[in-house]
Amino acid sequence: MALLEVTNLGIVFGGLQAVDKFDLTIDKGQLYGLIGPNGAGKTTVFNMLTGVYAPTEGDIILDGTSIKGKQPAMISKAGIARTFQNIRLFNQLSVIDNVKVGLHNQIKYSTAEGIFRLPSYYERESQFRGQAMNLLEIFGLQDEAKQLSSNLPYGKQRKLEMARALATNPKLLLLDEPAAGMNPNETAELMETVRFVRDKFKIAILLIEHDMSFVMGLCEKIVVLDYGRIIAKGNPEEVRSNPKVIAAYLGGE
């Protein structure tokens, strides 16, 4: 059974049909790419999948249960994590605390236990520290753990966002332009990291990216959006040679 099944998804803003009849099926462990020209509705799809926007039509089924119209926090608990196109870190928290916030629903103790410093507090906090450090090490951020997250360079902020998203123990990870602003070396390194993450955590990944070599080199399947509609779907070879895709990108008759 597929991990994520999106059927006939649509959303209207005022009179504008931003996304229409969007269908998508993602299997466990699949690397899926979502591409399209600017303004095609890619981030809108992400926002619907994560509950930021409530879709006006269609259904989203994750692992057998519908998550359509649920609050973002509930969807996170259900198993979808994401990063943001314009990085959204907790700027006044340290790098490690950003990841600890991501672990919020994985390790639990009550407010009272925290205030009165019961033994459970120390036990859970050391779990928090251990797991957060493990995640930071995957992304090579362990040395910056105590820094303010806003002091990190751009590329590391993107990595930290991924670490934080993974901390929520997702089944599906959504990456919104993970390679934006990276140089070719960093992009190549990121490809390795994404593959590593998929294999290590055994999760499916759906990513939006404009860097074609990145998407074509990494993703097993690709879906192309233009003006809110799917114009092509398939493996990288099929998508690359699809005349509609070429027209959308280069401008056609």
Partner: peptide, 10 residues
């Protein structure tokens, strides 16, 4: 620091 991101991590 960021309400939307906080919601997104549950």
């Amino acid at each position: 620091d960021n309400r939307i991101a906080a919601e997104s991590v549950g």
